[in-house]
């Protein structure tokens, strides 16, 4: 399914949203209070898009592997100049497991060994810690397992939304509060409220089949 939007300057924005089984999709709001022009509103990620966890020693299986700061998201959102309302945005994450027939497991690329030991890894073994300088995300600074339920379209995890706002003006000059999900940019004075650092951790233990597995995480910036 292709969803096309046209920005204020007439630039086409084509977003592919995978709505087949095994994928969660960004939820599109009906509101049009924010500027959809990608020059003014965008989710920016300059970090690498591939995170590889290689478990090749017993201590890694037992103690897990952590990749710190491997995803950094930056947000800029502007008001829709043609709308008189207040622009509010939310940041979400969703997971896809490709062609896996089971919507609770990682996609298997291939298996090692006899394939008789254990089960396929489930989505909930991926832990994520999301934070920024103002600690505005939900569960800021704490490792959580964001994908604990079966996949279904629209089954996303909120990082920032209107229903849950953390305003922490005392955290520093860059955390004035109020802009937690309002208009602003990571290039402005309140840059900490518009930047997000994501750490990943996996502790597999000894219950899973040896093999190579993959999932895809989608970060979505939409109107709230």
């Amino acid at each position: 399914m292709k969803i096309g939007a046209v920005g204020a300057e007439g630039q086409p924005v084509s977003i592919g949203v995978n709505a087949v089984t095994g994928s969660a999709a960004c939820v599109i709001s009906a509101s049009t209070e924010c500027d959809a022009n990608p020059a003014n509103s965008a989710l920016v990620m300059n970090t690498t898009t591939n995170k590889e966890f290689i478990f090749d020693s017993f201590s890694k299986y037992n103690g897990g592997l952590t990749i710190n700061g491997s995803t950094i998201l930056k947000v800029k959102v502007a008001d829709n100049p043609l709308s008189g309302g207040v622009c509010k945005w939310k940041l979400q994450m969703a997971v896809s497991n490709g062609t896996s027939p089971d919507d609770t497991e990682w996609e298997t690329l291939f298996s090692y060994g006899s394939g008789s030991s254990g089960s396929k890894p489930t989505l909930d073994i991926l832990q994520a810690r999301i934070d920024n300088g103002c600690h505005t995300p939900q569960n800021a600074g704490v490792y959580i397992s964001p994908f604990t339920t079966s996949l279904s379209p629209g089954n996303t995890v909120d990082i920032i939304n209107t229903a849950f706002l953390t305003i922490n003006p005392g955290a520093g000059a860059a955390c004035s509060g109020g802009e937690t999900n309002g208009v602003g940019t990571y290039l402005g004075l309140d840059y900490s409220e518009y930047s997000f650092v994501i750490d990943y951790r996996i502790v597999p233990g000894f219950d899973y089949l040896p093999g190579r597995y993959e999932i895809s995480i989608k970060f979505c910036l939409t109107e709230d």
Binding site: I3, A5, V6, G7, A8, V13, I15, C26, I28, S29, A30, S31, T32, C34, D35, A36, N37, P38, S41, A42, L43, V44, M45, T49, L73, V77, N80, C87, W89, S216, I217, K218, F219, C220, L221, T222, E223
Partner: peptide, 8 residues
């Protein structure tokens, strides 16, 4: 127009 951007 609706605000929607994503990264993977």
């Amino acid at each position: 127009a609706q605000l929607l951007d994503e990264q993977n």
